[in-house]
Write a protein that binds this DNA or RNA. Structure first.
Lengths: 128, 128
DNA sequence: GACTTATATAAGTCTACGCTGACATAGTGG
DNA sequence: CCACTATGTCAGCGTAGACTTATATAAGTC
């Protein structure tokens, strides 16, 4: 299974965002996700299992609790996949700089269209 | 719709890989995808539409043909999302360097486990 | 106009996946 | 031992999305 297949779900992405901030109990993760996405504890647990089984998280027991931490190794796969597109970004930035320089020289045109601002936070399923 | 939602499908990822190599006709893309994934022309066309409508590709007409090119802007969203995990990669590399140095000093241990090699090419749905 | 090629769209089918409620298992403390 | 908390697992359900076949539309040729 490819990393993108795992990350194709907004709940799992959100879980990883939460774990990126630091190790957390299953219950704490579940509380946030239940609140944000309006799904049940077993649903969250299933997502945790997908992440665990695909290497995105590590888990250790502490009494009755399970503490989950992120394992970012599989995310390298995403980064590697992105590599083929990074050249395009640089080209577009170069083109934009050229356009701005031309705009300053000519002093007649309106401002160029601003690039898309990426989403700051993953939208919840409720918002879709 | 988040970029990861679009990229959560292996066909769409493969299409983008093909387009990253250069502009192509719908038909050419379709031929490769049909061969690799064993799906029909309309199925490929539907995926192209998802990509188009979510800004991942640009299309221009040339006679009866449609030429598709990649627009990598939405992929920035993926890159930004990845940002929070990059620190972890560096930590692991630092830890690995330390481990190797320790290994050389002690001269008694086997070689440390090698990191996961990322997949070179996206697996096809047939292979799953 | 009739025909061809190119490919997008429409309408219907099917199943994988994400969900649920119930409950099993593990651990703790009195 | 019992009651409780924590959370993973089970079994079943519903639907979103990926698929199909049929065909509409666009462009070009003779």
């Amino acid at each position: 299974m490819h990393a993108f297949d795992v990350l194709g779900d907004p709940v799992r992405r959100r879980i990883l965002e939460l774990l990126a901030e630091g190790e957390q109990t299953s219950g704490a993760v579940s509380a946030v996700i239940q609140e944000e996405f309006g799904i049940s504890q077993p649903a969250v647990s299933q997502h945790l299992r997908v992440l665990r089984e695909n290497g995105f998280t590590a888990v250790r027991a502490e009494g009755t609790r399970r503490l989950y931490s992120v394992d970012s190794t599989p995310l390298r796969e995403v980064d590697v996949w992105l590599e083929r597109f990074r050249g395009f970004w640089n080209q577009r930035l170069d083109a934009l700089a050229t356009e701005i320089a031309r705009g300053k020289r000519e002093r007649r045109q309106g401002s160029p269209g601003s690039p898309n601002a990426p989403t700051g936070r993953t939208p919840t399923r409720k918002e879709k």
